Simulated assay, not measured.
Amino acid sequence: MTESPNYPNYPDSAATGHPAAAPARPSTVEGAFWAFIASTVIGLVGGLLIFGNRGSITDALRNSNRQNGGGLTDAQIDQAVTIAMITAVVIAVVIAALYLLFAFKLRAGRNWARIVLTVLTALQLLSLLIGQSTIVGYVGVLAAIAGVVMSFLAPSNAYFAAAKGIR
């Protein structure tokens, strides 16, 4: 098909029979994507580090058990710690998979993914400020904050607007 005579500079679209080209992804969106990937990897590492704390977790549970009347045997305490650790790792993996999904959708220009990642980062920061954390937690949240900031810079905003116009 030929271009409309009234709109010679109008990009190809469904009206002309040609799909519009995807907008060029700015470096700010690429940077945000990689910051969220880094935050995800750091979160997984933090989730796996729980295995190094098995002894202290077991000791804390044993002390709590003694203070509360000693209703659990050592075997039950060990089993409870194992279940808790496996559950924590499974949750970390599920959260990491969701973060990866949202990061790839952000990279593809989906504004909803940018919003979801912003909300998740805010919750991650709130969790960090309320509870105990490690240096790994601080590094992970800093990477996520960097991703949020980069995803809302002017070139990123233009990219998300252009990507929305294509759909």
Score class of each variant (00 low, 15 high):
Gly71Phe: 13
Gly71Leu: 11
Gly71Tyr: 13
Gly71Glu: 11
Leu72Pro: 07
Leu72Glu: 14
Leu72Asp: 12
Leu72Phe: 15
Thr73Trp: 11
Thr73Cys: 08
Thr73Gln: 15
Thr73His: 12
Asp74Gly: 10
Asp74Thr: 07
Asp74Ala: 12
Ala75Gln: 14
Ala75Glu: 15
Ala75Asp: 12
Ala75Ser: 12
Ala75Thr: 15
Ala75Asn: 11
Ala75Val: 10
Ala75Gly: 09
Gln76Asp: 06
Gln76Ser: 02
Gln76His: 01
Gln76Glu: 14
Gln76Gly: 00
Ile77Phe: 02
Ile77Leu: 04
Ile77Asn: 07
Asp78Arg: 01
Asp78Lys: 03
Asp78Met: 00
Asp78Glu: 12
Gln79Lys: 14
Gln79Cys: 04
Gln79Thr: 15
Gln79Gly: 10
Ala80Lys: 13
Ala80Phe: 05
Val81His: 05
Val81Met: 09
Val81Ile: 12
Val81Gln: 04
Thr82Gly: 09
Thr82Pro: 01
Thr82Ala: 11
Thr82Cys: 01
Thr82Glu: 14
Ile83Thr: 15
Ile83Val: 15
Ile83Cys: 09
Ile83Asp: 13
Ile83Ser: 13
Ile83Gly: 10
Ala84Gly: 14
Met85Leu: 11
Met85Thr: 12
Met85Phe: 02
Met85Glu: 15
Met85Trp: 09
Met85Ala: 13
Ile86Arg: 06
Ile86Gly: 05
Ile86Pro: 05
Ile86Val: 15
Ile86Asp: 07
Ile86Cys: 09
Ile86Tyr: 10
Thr87Tyr: 09
Thr87Asp: 08
Thr87Gly: 15
Thr87Gln: 07
Ala88Pro: 04
Ala88Met: 12
Ala88Trp: 06
Ala88His: 02
Ala88Phe: 05
Val89Ser: 09
Val89Pro: 10
Val90Asn: 09
Val90Asp: 08
Val90Pro: 04
Val90Leu: 12
Ile91His: 03
Ile91Gly: 03
Ile91Val: 15
Ile91Trp: 05
Ala92Arg: 01
Ala92His: 03
Ala92Phe: 03
Ala92Val: 08
Ala92Asn: 08
Val93His: 11
Val93Met: 09
Val93Pro: 10
Val94Met: 11
Val94Leu: 15
Val94Tyr: 13
Ile95Pro: 00
Ile95Gly: 00
Ile95His: 00
Ile95Cys: 01
Ile95Trp: 00
Ile95Tyr: 03
Ile95Lys: 00
Ala96Arg: 02
Ala96His: 02
Ala96Tyr: 03
Ala96Phe: 03
Ala96Leu: 03
Ala97Pro: 00
Ala97Glu: 02
Ala97Tyr: 01
Ala97Gly: 01
Leu98Ser: 02
Leu98Val: 09
Tyr99Lys: 10
Tyr99His: 12
Tyr99Ile: 08
Tyr99Ser: 15
Tyr99Leu: 14
Tyr99Asp: 14
Leu100Glu: 04
Leu100Asn: 04
Leu100Ser: 01
Leu100Ala: 14
Leu101Cys: 00
Leu101Arg: 05
Leu101Thr: 11
Leu101Gln: 01
Leu101Lys: 03
Phe102Cys: 08
Phe102Gln: 08
Phe102Asn: 02
Phe102Glu: 06
Phe102Ile: 01
Ala103Ile: 07
Ala103Ser: 10
Phe104Gln: 07
Phe104Pro: 01
Phe104Tyr: 11
Phe104Asn: 08
Phe104Val: 13
Phe104Cys: 11
Lys105Thr: 04
Lys105Gly: 07
Lys105Glu: 12
Lys105Ala: 14
Lys105His: 08
Leu106Arg: 06
Leu106Thr: 07
Arg107Cys: 10
Arg107Gly: 05
Arg107His: 11
Arg107Lys: 14
Ala108Trp: 03
Ala108Gln: 09
